[in-house]
């Protein structure tokens, strides 16, 4: 990953939503990230990122390797920023043990104490947090995530989805003010996903600050309306998800078409305004279009009219990487 340490502060491509009316709970942001850069040797994992987050659910969206987990680790104090400042509840978690007690983290890596049962693991999390009734809280947290506290099986024998839920329960056990969930929906089935997303919203509505990362666009739409988009270690967009979605829908799309006469099809598509650009390589046609819906409706009738046989029509950039690339290039 590349990045310049002297680069200017990135300007969000989406203006942030209007601030909520001031209230006691939102007087000060729970998370403050100021011009933070994190390098590992020559590799810049996070570059000059700034944002603040208050109560509610905020989704951190970015492809794998974008720097999401590094950002989360810095928020928790697990690693120190190379430059800039990260504060949670006004303090640095790396230095203030009381702040560490107000954070709940479900890390991305599939690491649990495999010889413990789910109850033992979550109860231990409660004791290490100094909660008043670790046993009761452990049972309550496990119930939140639909796990049985009496299950005698060790977590080492659990499925990926069950392990994710154990991590979530452990993150909830201390009733944290800031809940950091790194790809928490990975491995969950659709029913569990819905259940977890609903739980996130309940917690957010209750005044907790939830930061939830994902690399799945549609998942983010359901997690939170407030999004932070990270790509190549930079914050490339932040604000309301619906505006981000509109922006992404407006971007040019590239589609690969295999046919028995690519040149003839290319001239027809451009001539009729269905494509904005085309490149031909043997029988493969690469089309750029701003109106993907119109292209989708027109390609078959035009081919049929010209007597051209279509073999394949595939969008080549309908993935998050291309969306992020587009957002980065726009900056």
């Amino acid at each position: 990953m590349s990045g310049s340490e002297s680069s200017p502060v990135p300007q969000p491509v989406i203006p942030p939503p209007p601030p909520p009316p001031p209230s006691e709970s939102s007087a000060r942001p729970i998370v403050e990230v100021e011009n933070v850069t994190k390098s590992f040797g020559d590799v810049v994992a996070v570059s000059d990122v700034s944002f603040t987050v208050g109560p509610g659910v905020t989704a951190l969206l970015g492809p794998n390797g974008a720097g999401k987990s590094t950002l989360f680790r810095m928020l928790c104090g697990l690693t120190a920023p190379s430059r800039g400042a990260v504060r949670v509840l006004g303090e640095k978690a790396r230095e203030h043990r009381e702040v560490r007690g107000r954070i709940g983290l479900a890390p991305q890596q599939d690491a649990l104490l495999d010889r413990f049962t789910a109850y033992e693991f979550v109860e231990l999390a409660g004791r290490t947090h100094g909660v008043a009734d670790p046993s009761g809280r452990a049972r309550q947290s496990l119930a939140y995530v639909d796990l049985d506290p009496e299950d005698p099986k060790r977590v080492g024998a659990y499925s990926k989805g069950m392990r994710q839920r154990v991590k979530l329960a452990a993150a909830l056990v201390n009733d944290p003010d800031l809940l950091i969930l790194d790809e928490p929906l990975t491995g969950l089935d659709p029913v569990q996903r819905n259940r977890m997303i609903s739980l996130f919203h309940d917690l957010g509505d209750g005044g907790k600050c939830l930061l939830v990362s994902s690399h799945v666009l549609d998942e983010v739409a359901r997690i939170g309306s407030n999004v932070l988009v990270v790509a190549q270690g930079r914050l490339v967009a932040s604000g309301d998800y619906r505006r981000l979605r509109e922006l992404m829908d407006d971007r040019p799309h590239r589609i690969r078409v295999q046919s028995d006469d690519a040149r003839k099809l290319a001239s027809a598509l451009i001539g009729r305004g269905v494509a904005d650009g085309a490149a031909v390589r043997e029988n493969t046609l690469l089309i750029d279009t701003l109106n993907v819906d119109r292209f989708g409706r027109s390609i078959a009738p035009i081919s049929s009219e010209l007597g051209i046989r279509l073999r394949e029509v595939v969008p080549t950039d309908d993935d998050l990487e291309s969306v992020f690339r587009y957002l980065v290039e726009r900056r």
Binding site: L78, R97, E98, R100, G101, L105, Q109, L113, L124, T128
Partner: peptide, 13 residues
Amino acid sequence: DGTLVYLWLRPMD
């Protein structure tokens, strides 16, 4: 194995 976080990220000296 990545489980040190369960002791480290706690309000403990």
